[in-house]
Simulated assay, not measured.
Amino acid sequence: MTVNNKRVFYVKYLAHPIYADILRARPDVRLDKLENESAEDVFAPVLREAHAYQIGAARDELAPHFHAHAELLRKAPNLLIVSSNGAGFDPVDVEACTAAGVLVVNQSGGNAHSVAEHALGMMLTLSKRVIQADRRLRREPNVNRNDLMGNEVHGRTVGIVGIGNVGRRIAELCKGLLGMRVLAYDPYLSREEIAARGAEMVELDDLMRRSDFVSINCPLTKESRGMIGAREFSLMQKHAYFITTARGFIHDEAALEDALRNKRIAGAGLDVWAKEPPPPEHPLLQFDNVLASPHTAGVTKEARENMGRIAAQQILDALDGKRPPRIINPEVWPRYSERFARAFGIRPQ
């Protein structure tokens, strides 16, 4: 093998050190690390020679000039692949990558168990009013337990928006463990596919009306941005809970605040935010019936290692000329194949 003729870089952090271990075991691959603060005379040569960019999925943790947009792509003429650390790809302008002939891949499914368990934990904590009980015990004497009466989750209805890897796992847990009815809205899947994943296919409005728990599990795209707003919250039942472990900007935070303040819904479990992490004074953090976490649903030791491993293997497979299994923009394949052949002298499979 030619030493270091395949160039990969990342900025600030990887999902797990195993990613670097796997790549560094290959003598034909060079892995470069940059920092948000790296000077242009440091990062410009790395971008210019890079074939692959392993990009952090958390948009607010990555300096804007390192987001995979048109300007960065102009500085990286040899770039073939942008690979996100996780299932999300917020800092990636997919259209700009497609226009430049750059393949975009993610690590969907790598953290599905962790995120699904987090969503289920939020549902149980809110329904049993565990979070309110915990807070009251810490600040009040002689708490009356009857004031904290909750509800069973068994037999209730969960509505899943986006029944991909995470949504499918939530459906399995809710149906199998808790005997819940599962509804799903996913415009990219057929009725038969949704049924095979354990759910009844419904339209979004119907899901919002009928669900005791609404769980958001779709990626942030042009179609899903702002999908859940004042109108959608107004359709929910007063005893229902809104849960999201997906991405900020899919739901309207001001509209959710209004729904909670006016008691139109029973509460919310929020793992994702428009700005991450949210400041302590954020309006949604002032409600006792809001359970909050700072985008940690997929942050477990098991998920991080799994995503690091599959990300490394996917990059190596792609650089070896194989077709990656988790492509976001498959329409770019013909152009990408031509660019790959020019770079390495072989056409990818």
Rank of each mutant, 00 (worst) to 15 (best):
G198M: 04
G155W: 09
G150F: 08
A184S: 08
I194N: 04
E172K: 12
L235H: 05
R181G: 13
K238R: 14
R261N: 13
G229C: 05
L235K: 01
Y185I: 11
L235E: 04
A184Y: 01
H154C: 04
P278S: 08
Y185W: 15
G155T: 11
A240D: 00
F233N: 02
S190P: 15
K263M: 05
R139H: 14
R191L: 12
R135S: 12
D147R: 14
S190C: 11
N144W: 11
M201S: 15
L256Y: 00
E276Q: 10
R261V: 12
H154G: 01
G269D: 07
R225S: 03
N151F: 11
G267E: 10
P187H: 10
E253A: 06
V143I: 12
R209V: 12
V158A: 04
L173T: 03
R247K: 11
Y188Q: 14
E253C: 08
R135Q: 14
G267F: 07
Q237F: 06
A246T: 06
R210W: 02
N142W: 12
L177E: 08
K263T: 12
Q237V: 06
V158Y: 01
R145T: 13
G176R: 09
N165M: 10
I243L: 06
E257A: 08
R135A: 14
D186G: 08
R264S: 04
D252E: 03
A266Y: 05
R139I: 11
L270K: 14
G162R: 00
R197N: 11
K175E: 05
M227H: 04
F233W: 01
P278C: 07
A184P: 02
N144T: 12
A196H: 12
M227R: 10
K263P: 00
T245A: 03
A171S: 13
R209F: 09
L235Y: 09
E192A: 15
D252A: 06
A259R: 03
A246S: 05
F213A: 06
M201F: 14
R209E: 11
G176V: 07
K263F: 02
A268Y: 01
P219M: 01
V202P: 15
D186I: 03
R169D: 05
A259C: 06
N142P: 15
G198K: 03
N151G: 14
A254N: 10
G229F: 04
N262M: 01
E172Y: 09
L270N: 04
W273T: 01
I216T: 01
D252M: 06
C218H: 04
D271G: 14
E223N: 07
V202F: 14
R138A: 13
E276D: 11
R139Y: 11
A184T: 01
R139D: 08
D258M: 06
V214M: 03
A230N: 13
P277Q: 04
G198A: 05
R231K: 11
L235R: 05
N217H: 09
P277H: 09
